[in-house]
């Protein structure tokens, strides 16, 4: 078809967590500009399976509509590729040109070890959530809407923070592999609402301790995370996390 492209891929191939990996060249021909980046990998994997010489490339994906956060690909030096506010599954080949060379790597962080090829183990995020990113009480039936007054601004900020899909692009983008944007979103989302208040201090202390224990680096406020986050989580959340943490350690009975 006219308008279709040829793409030169350099893809990170690694058998398992223990083996050495390397970049391998693949030429993908006749790529439709309307394909998503993952569909291009489907086409390539189909070919690899049919040829039977090489194993298909392992990569994470689930919803393919930008809400699950599993499609982690570091594309030409940027997490989720060149566009702002989108995940890899929502990146389309029309964002590239015919004969482009595209380097695709897994997230790189001591806390996100490679499982295979482009798939990394991001259970460090799960352990951070398990350390405090929840509310312990049952919320029960839906209450009368006005029984729990919440200022509109707080509700908006909480909702915006809750948009975090836990993809890990913030860690991948950060030169220190810091998880501050993720943790700050999870802390903010609950700290802004009355339901989150009873566990506010323990939550932030435990989540920060778990974040440090997982081997993420510290935040030097470069802002790379905010620029690359597919859900455009704001740096104001990181300032709130700092505040919440100092307040909890200095003025609460916790810690």
């Amino acid at each position: 078809m006219s308008g279709n492209m040829n793409i030169n891929l350099k893809v990170w191939r690694q058998k398992n967590g223990k083996s050495q990996g390397k970049l391998v060249d693949y030429k993908v021909e006749n790529v439709s500009p309307d394909m998503s980046f993952l569909e291009m990998f489907d086409v390539l994997n189909d070919r690899l399976i049919n040829e039977g010489k090489d194993e298909p490339i392992a990569f994470d994906h689930d919803c393919r509509e930008g809400i699950c956060g599993s499609c982690s690909m570091y594309i030409n030096g940027r997490p989720h590729g060149p566009n702002q506010g989108v995940t890899t599954c929502q990146l389309h080949m029309r964002s590239f040109k015919d004969n482009d060379t595209i380097v695709v790597e897994p997230w790189r962080s001591a806390a996100f070890p490679v499982i295979k090829d482009l798939a990394t183990n991001r259970s460090a995020f799960d352990r951070i959530i398990a350390s405090g990113g929840f509310i312990s009480i049952n919320t029960g039936n839906a209450q009368d809407a006005n029984s729990l007054p919440i200022p509109k601004g707080d509700a908006d900020d909480s909702f915006a923070a809750a948009a975090c899909i836990g993809c890990g692009a913030c860690v991948a983008a950060c030169k220190n592999s810091s998880a501050m944007l993720f943790v700050s979103a999870k802390v903010s989302q609950l700290a802004l609402l009355p339901q989150g208040a009873p566990e506010r201090a323990t939550r932030v202390i435990n989540m920060v301790a778990q974040m440090d224990a997982e081997g993420f680096g510290s935040c030097t406020n470069t802002g790379a995370c905010e620029a690359e986050c597919p859900k455009q989580i704001s740096l104001t959340n990181i300032a709130r996390l700092n505040r919440e943490y100092y307040k909890a350690t200095l003025f609460s009975n916790e810690g």
Partner: peptide
Amino acid sequence: SRPVKYAA
């Protein structure tokens, strides 16, 4: 915190 660097 990033033992393996990015190629790009």
